[in-house]
Write a protein that binds this DNA or RNA. Structure first.
Lengths: 184, 184
DNA sequence: ACCTGAACACCGTTCAAGT
DNA sequence: ACCTGAACACCGTTCAAGT
């Protein structure tokens, strides 16, 4: 991929930047043809660089995942274990809501080792596992759940507001209910 | 609607029965054209009887909603308030999972008074509100939530398994976490 | 190597023409 | 009053033809 031809690299970047805009506007189910058209490339060019929709979303999200993994380390250093985990999960669900459909993509990919999104997810997963383990050892979080449970539940709360914008005002309370359920 | 012509009534029933099968197979996003084709009617006939996808889903679900409202009364009579609410919510999420996409339709319609699904939802809503109020007065459920919160959260747990079948084995545990979060 | 865009098989939705 | 199916404007995806 480092030996990419200059025009190919330019198109790759162009498609990705356009996809970021269009997905922010229309969600993860945005028309791929629309993305290609607005990027000014042929349909086939999009498919050459991103053979599946997940491949495109993956490229779109890798940055966000890396950032979240970094935030986990910061929070772990700054806060007690339970507060660090709760703070991190709260940031995660806020970030996933930036793109409509993202909680779904994230949950779908959580256990799918074949998806390109899964690889990008791993760093974040391990960060989640670390925070969770520490909070469990401190006796602040129930011991019968793992990081997959926590990520699935938190994203499901993000999904609610995206499914029905009128419920967005309830988001904080719903998140609090789930976090209380995770407590020991 | 009682003065429906015989052929219209026959088509209405035929479309609904076919939709039940197809939605069970393919979820709430099933192709409307496919439903019309398998019912043996023209595309326009489906639109005449069900002008929107929601109208079709509503007809499909009214029975289930009525049944759930009835179950609420049974559980309220047979169990202490907290157990009645928890049992009812557990049945609800099990039923909603029968059709892929149903938790989403239900949450979407929860606050939309214009949708035909909303009307069908009202009986169930009131049943939920009654169970919830009793459980809150008994001090078993936290007092800062309403039935909309409870229904949204429970359906979000149903959404998880539908989004990623590999997470289905975690369903009972995830439901337990949310129910614990709802406890006082 | 990479790009383009026509082509194919779908989809939701509408509406003139029939009975 | 109701039904039909062609028609329209989309969509995802592929692939021969170009550079």
């Amino acid at each position: 991929m480092t030996a990419r031809r200059a025009d190919a690299q330019r198109n790759y970047d162009l498609i990705l930047a356009t996809a970021r805009t269009v997905v922010a506007e229309q969600g993860t189910q945005a028309s791929l043809r629309d993305i290609a058209r607005r990027a000014g490339v042929g349909d086939g060019t999009l498919y050459r660089h991103f053979p599946t929709r997940d491949a495109l979303l993956e490229a779109l999200l890798r940055q966000g995942f890396d950032r979240l993994a970094g935030r986990a380390a910061e929070l772990a250093a700054a806060l007690p274990p339970g507060a660090a985990l709760r703070g991190w999960l709260t940031e995660l669900v806020g970030g996933a809501q930036m793109y409509r459909g993202m909680p779904g993509s994230l949950v779908a990919v959580l256990t799918d080792t074949t998806s390109p999104l899964h690889e990008a997810c791993q760093g974040m997963r391990e960060a989640a596992a670390g925070l969770l383990r520490a909070a469990q050892q401190a006796g602040e979080i129930r011991s019968d759940i793992d990081e997959t449970d926590a990520l699935a539940l938190i994203n499901s709360v993000g999904w609610i507001a995206e499914q029905n914008p009128q419920l967005a005002s309830r988001h904080d309370r719903l998140l609090a209910v789930v976090l209380d359920g995770l407590a020991a």
